[in-house]
Design a protein around this nucleic acid. Structure first.
Lengths: 162, 162
DNA sequence: TTTTCAGACTAACAAGTGTTAGTTTTGTGA
DNA sequence: TCACAAAACTAACACTTGTTAGTCTGAAAA
């Protein structure tokens, strides 16, 4: 809290005129990002289009979030486990999101859009790549968001062997 | 240190009969895993075989490391930045490893084994999935290591669209 | 049997943590 | 110009942290 206050040019005690605890800061950052993300995810789920279309949209949503909310994504990824009252709620949002993602994949397999490969492995592979974007995007200043969407979708969905 | 000592059934001060500082514990865990990993990686680099063969071997090495050294992998992934004297050495090992990985991909593209897709995106996608394995493997108790190697290689390298 | 020493112990330190109580300053509306 | 509220301040709290100094214990070596 002292570091944070110094960065803002005030004393630590003055922070408590604005927030009620350190926990509250964590909660605000993580829960508001998680809710914003979830609501965009629900729009994708409800949309028309093939499973591949939806997967592409999910990739784009992650790229957008990681580039516009890099630090919030870092907090969400690294510090969600330090939430207290909201930990359960966060985990609920997260498992709904994973369940939606999984459903898109199984539907895609069912209607022959996707290979009949291990669903959990597919899900894990996409999720862990997309969740790490926040670490990687800031290091590649020169990349164009549209190109990134395209090549990330290509690599994740279509693979890279000939 | 007090938690650690309690877990061992001794008092915190007694730990200092065995190690010289908390830092040293971190160093031992991270550097020894990184060195072991690097030396196995070098064997793969030096081996005969196509780029695809090498990529498969790298996947298998990550799966093996994540399942046999889950906690050490967690420490390495989450706490390498808290290394002090060894931070530079760690980053050096890591960038050599990434450079080797990148080289396998560019060779694969050059000899037409792999698609001519964005190398950095391919590398990022594989790396972030493989680096997250330590989080995921313990949750899937029932999975067989050999099957995991196969389906992970399939998903990462061949993609999952039809 | 005595000596030695690794490895446990207790007690305490200095520094850092989030937070509160009470006070002063500052800027805006009456 | 005055009143008041927002938001800064100082001082201190209770607790946690890694670590050290000095001591005791028990088992192996002499």
């Amino acid at each position: 809290m002292r570091d944070l206050a110094t960065e803002m040019g005030i004393k630590a005690a003055s922070l408590y005129n604005h927030i009620s605890s350190k926990q509250e800061i964590l909660k605000i950052i993580i829960i508001s990002l998680a809710e914003a993300f979830t609501s965009e995810m629900n729009i994708i789920i409800a949309s028309e289009g093939s499973s591949l279309d939806k997967l592409n949209k999910i990739v784009a949503l992650h790229v957008k979030t990681a580039s516009e909310n890099t630090y919030e994504m870092a907090a969400l990824n690294n510090d969600w486990m330090h939430l207290e009252e909201q930990r359960h709620y966060y985990l609920q949002l997260r498992s709904e999101y994973e369940e939606n993602f999984r459903h898109i994949i199984t539907s895609g397999i069912a209607n022959k859009e996707l290979k009949d490969e291990n669903v959990e492995v597919m899900l894990f592979s996409m999720l862990s790549t997309l969740r790490s974007l926040y670490l990687w995007i800031p290091k590649k200043e020169d990349l164009n968001i549209q190109n990134l969407n395209t090549s990330l979708s290509n690599v994740l969905i279509h693979g890279f062997n000939k």
